[in-house]
Amino acid sequence: MSGLPPYADLLGLTLEPDAEGAPVLLMPFGDPVVGRPGFLHGGAISGLLEMAAYMALVHELAGEADAGVKPINVTVDFMRGGRDKPTRARGTVTRLGTRVANVEASAWQDDPAQPIAGARMNYLVLRS
């Protein structure tokens, strides 16, 4: 178990914080995430991106114990096929407002500057 939700375990995700402690997710290549033979399923890439966006937002909200978040929408752009190798993803909170957070996420294999896919997400921020 990874301490992540069951769906993250299904994808095989593990947390690899960067030097500053910000969350980076690692997804190994394997049958549960394969689409056509030899390539990642776009849905698995999207699941990784959404989880990376969520982790980045939770990390940003770490000081607020009573804050919760709900996804409003996601837009995923697929830029390159995901090959038979590990994939990493990280999220960036571009704006954290009182009600809405805008988060971006990027997934890459060899080079973070050559993403295989990217996502933009809007979240509802719930502060009781």
Binding site: Y7, H41, G43
Partner: peptide
Amino acid sequence: QLVGDPESGVIASGPILT
């Protein structure tokens, strides 16, 4: 195994997108 929020039992959004 699809759950994204163990507290509520609601599935993650990823499987819906897939």
